[in-house]
Amino acid sequence: MTSPTPSPPFAIEIANLTVSYGPVPALLDISVKIPAGSLVGIIGPNGSGKSTFIKSILGFVRPDVGEVKIFGESAEQAKGQVAYVPQRGSVDWDFPITVREVAMMGRYGAVPWWKDLGRRDRQIADQALEMVRMQEFAHRQIGQLSGGQQQRVFMARAMAQGAEILLLDEPFAGVDAATERAILDVLAQTKKAGRTLLVVHHDLATAAEYFDRLLLLKQRLFAFGPPQAVLHPRLLSEVYEGNLRVFADMQSREFVADDEVSR
């Protein structure tokens, strides 16, 4: 039994990536392969290079050494396959534009400038809105939505773009618990649709619950794998030096777990 043209197993392949802005590298010798369809949390202390990592995948920063491959192609060839969901703070929420129009922006790259968006493009945008369950708000101006809904609109735009890979830089920063839930729902849905998601995340306490894999970064790649393996106290204390509260918290959890096992 042979399967016809198996799809490439890795969404993102990074080999020996070093990126620097000055005399000290922001990323040093990072090699990692991220399987398609996974929901990956990127963790690490402030200034550890998480945003730089995201930017290298988007092709915004030029590596000193190494390469980034998207579904086996170089980053330039794969333009449009990777979508970036912006931070909420960077959007003008008063802009006169409706939810559906934002979703439609996802199709702008697919249509030559002298043509109008076709029926097919509208369908795709509507499907994307349906997927994030925002179709009932299609004609609202984007300022008149809750934080979680706003996040979903931009996820829809990324999906309408047809991007297989979504990069989110701290989508949970400054949102309440309900919104966090709502965003998580969308992440789960998107993953179910077979897309690959990379999410910069700061809260170690919830990281294990939210993601299938974690990528622990501090200039170098310290770990990539299932949360239980990455959230190892020894590893965390090495990466979050001085940040003892988090570390202590993790350790006490582990002790609790050990207790339960021994009983």
């Binding site: 005399p23 000290v24 000193d64 050494v65 190494g66 200039q219």
Partner: peptide, 24 residues
């Protein structure tokens, strides 16, 4: 080690040697 062709080694290393902090 990462497979750069021999004739490009020197020039690339010349760019990279400016990353010379102790940790790196």
């Amino acid at each position: 080690h990462v497979g750069t062709p021999l004739d490009e080694l020197h020039n690339q290393a010349h760019q990279l040697e400016h990353l010379h902090d102790e940790e790196t």
